[in-house]
Amino acid sequence: MNAAPFQVKSRIVNDVAVIYPKGYLNNLSGEGLVSECGRYIETGIKKIIVNFSETDLINSIGISLLLHVMEELQTTGGTLCFTDMDKVQLGIFDMLGLTKYFRFFQDEKGALQFLGGSAE
């Protein structure tokens, strides 16, 4: 775990927003992620993928902010998918009994297929 300063990049694939949180997902960066998602939701996007391939460490505040995103999406009938999590990250969600509230995919491709967008 070599937590780097947090950045959030994103892109649109058809009607799906893919977010790439990078580094340490804590309160500060988590807020960044929430507002990035918020911007997409405002434009009518209902499908969001969070790709964790570049995320090092998610702390409990980061997790609570992800829950926040999920809630916001749910109110508009949208879907949130997580991809590219490592074993420890998955383990943390498992420890907290949160796996049933999210959809996890091994990679972005699988999530895009599930959401009915194509993988480029």
Partner: peptide
Amino acid sequence: SPTEEKMTAGQKRGWGFTLMRKI
């Protein structure tokens, strides 16, 4: 509080000690 309760109550903070104790 347990996860179920948290989720229904819309209370999303306070996982820290649960994690510490699990780990």
